[in-house]
Write a protein that binds this DNA or RNA. Sequence first.
DNA 1: CACAGTTATCTCAACGTTGAGATTATCAAT
DNA 2: ATTGATAATCTCAACGTTGAGATAACTGTG
Lengths: 166, 166
Amino acid sequence: MSDAVDLVLAQWGRERPDVDVWPMGIVGRISRLSRLLDIRLKEFFAEHDLERWEFDVMATLRRSGPPYELTAGALNRAAMITSGAITNRIDRMAKRGLVERVPDETDRRSVRVRLTERGWETVEKLVGPHTENEALLLAALGPRERDRLAGTLRDLLESLGDTSLD
Amino acid sequence: MSDAVDLVLAQWGRERPDVDVWPMGIVGRISRLSRLLDIRLKEFFAEHDLERWEFDVMATLRRSGPPYELTAGALNRAAMITSGAITNRIDRMAKRGLVERVPDETDRRSVRVRLTERGWETVEKLVGPHTENEALLLAALGPRERDRLAGTLRDLLESLGDTSLD
DNA sequence: CACAGTTATCTCAACGTTGAGATTATCAAT
DNA sequence: ATTGATAATCTCAACGTTGAGATAACTGTG
């Protein structure tokens, strides 16, 4: 079997046999996979009247444990977006009553973002179905392959200096 | 060793031990890797006064072989973007003299986008360095791992119905 | 205690994509 | 030939992110 990326590699092989373009076989596939998965996840959350990023923000808060709050900075590092974008997202989620801004007592520059009751329930209801949906999207992989793939991807992430969250 | 995603998995394990969130170990990493690679590639092309998508469009035309032209539709399928976006991109690249619009004789609805001499030279000059740069980003992988990873990712892409290009 | 440097968040203009609708052309069937 | 359905591209308003700058607060040094 072959996919869109195999075609790319074959074309380069024909047009520029002097260049070994093997890296495209990996970078290209990661890029395309990411986009395809985005689309599928978007569809899933749309069924629940939610944006994917809204779930991501809430899930980040939920899994951080009680009291289910983090600074705005921690959230934008986790989401890998800029500060302007996280301000915008928090604004909209606050309007929907999914999170609330809480002043930080120790550092008054900081804003703590806390999951509301409603936000908590939303995550609680969806973690299971969301995970099952992702499992379905990855159904092509056997248990062995899953572990090996996860391990390889982790090595890559580390080598690229993926910065962890708080 | 552990990365940002390992932390996510550990947190879920603590907060919701009843849910097996293994899929996040793969989906999350693909997503983060895609973003990190984007940033690195963007830096590379910036050094050559080029946007990444500009190179992608030109490379798609270049590797399709003589006469180095494709329809706008083929290009937006290859880039996985919408029709509005490809129109915009072609406009800007045409202004920079990297591609030109050519009327399609057989189908007058179509527009054929052709690589100009200047565009051709740009790709020709950069394919090698770009590929070497990507190889550097993937240096953490051994030859064996590379092949296995590429194969696994291809299986996933196919199972998700990745639509090929023309 | 004051100063300089750093950090956290918010503001906002510029920019690019999306997605629906408009336009023009092709194709299939009658 | 004509009609209806489909297809290719372009247009454009709405929307979200980026990235630089503004503001306010913290930190450590002298």
